[in-house]
């Protein structure tokens, strides 16, 4: 993305933010629900992008952390606690569990790690379903209230969409800061080569655990927003397919790219809706579109842009070398 001029980037960013605030004012209830879901899933995918895209640790458990956050928020808010307190508990709980889940990553990697996290995902689903004294079991938890923010009720879809969008903005800024901090660099070093990272004094053990914990905490935040968004939760939305969906969002958007999760969530949440004109075939069309995209660009949508910019840089460097060479020959 470094090929774009800075003012252009800022203008583009402001235009997108303005559009996200203004355009949905005319949306109907369903449109606002889908857009709020995009914001919530973007947060969860940003968490997975930290764990997988930046730190290189495969996880099939992000959906479980969304579930943990959702149940924490649902249980607390239906017992009279305010949503911010529930979000805080969701963060702490997901962070702590994510930290523990990071321990297997110290011993196993790649597809082995994927299976360890998959097992965790299944375990979490079974807990949501079987521990009905806490989670309501298969009947779930209903009548989850939406919060009052600064005295303003967010019961209606538009105000709650702004709650989701505001949360996405806060998380985006935090992640932006994190990946540009020494922590973010350390995560990338860990992904690229653990021995090299260790030779620079990076405590690979600590950073691996942190990558899991922070990524999971963001899953928890997303879950804590998901519960008041749907106002009813049961175990089904948090089964393995949510983890796979989140993985798809990260991969399709572009793992390790800051904006990857936003685009990936857009593809996963919004594209099926846009394809509804195809009626019964819309999910088949969606599957084919995703397959074609990944065959064309295995590094996701932002990978295409990155490749284009890299080619442009290579051409510019070759042109400079050709000029330098001809000058050298003239001198000789």
């Amino acid at each position: 993305m470094s090929g774009f001029a800075k003012p252009l980037k800022i203008a583009l960013g402001l235009a997108v933010i303005a559009a996200l605030i203004i355009v949905p004012m005319n949306f109907n209830r369903y449109g606002l629900f889908i857009l709020s879901q995009w914001a919530v899933m973007s947060i969860a995918a940003m968490g997975l992008n930290l764990t997988l895209g930046y730190a290189g640790q495969v996880s099939l458990a992000q959906g479980a952390f969304v579930g943990i956050g959702a149940y924490a928020a649902a249980i607390m808010t239906t017992h009279g606690w305010p949503l911010p307190a529930a979000i805080l508990v969701a963060i702490v709980l997901s962070f702590a569990i994510g930290w523990v889940l990071g321990y297997p990553a110290l011993r196993v990697q790649h597809h082995y790690l994927a299976f360890v996290t998959l097992a965790f995902s299944t375990l979490a689903f079974l807990l949501f379903r079987n521990e009905s004294w806490l989670t309501g079991g298969i009947y779930g938890i209903s009548n989850i209230p939406r919060p009052h923010i600064f005295g303003i009720a967010t019961n209606k879809p538009l105000p709650f969409y702004y709650v989701c969008l505001g949360s996405l903005a806060i998380v985006s800024l935090a992640v932006w800061w994190l990946i540009r901090s020494p922590w973010g660099r350390a995560f990338m070093a860990l992904r690229e080569n653990p021995l090299r990272a260790q030779s620079l004094g990076i405590d690979t053990r600590r950073y691996t655990l942190m990558a899991f914990a922070i990524g999971s905490a963001l899953g928890g935040v997303a879950g804590a927003l998901y519960a008041p968004l749907t106002q009813y939760i049961d175990p089904v939305p948090f089964n393995l397919s949510l983890s796979l969906d989140l993985l798809l969002m990260v991969i399709v958007g572009g793992a390790g790219f800051y904006f990857g999760p936003f685009l990936g969530a857009m593809i996963a949440v919004l594209l099926p809706e846009w394809l509804r004109f195809a009626e019964g075939y819309y999910l088949m069309l969606y599957a084919v579109a995703v397959m074609l995209l990944l065959i064309w660009s295995p590094t996701g949508i932002l990978g295409i842009l990155d490749r284009y910019l890299a080619e442009r840089r290579t051409k510019a460097a070759s042109a400079l070398r050709a000029v330098a060479k001809s000058r050298l020959e003239t001198v000789q």
Binding site: P182, R185, A186, M188, A189, E192, L200, G201, I202, G256
Partner: peptide
């Protein structure tokens, strides 16, 4: 994948 400056910055992580 990191820039030259970011590579150098990594030398100061510790």
């Amino acid at each position: 994948e990191l820039s030259v400056r970011h590579n150098i910055e990594l030398g100061g992580v510790a």
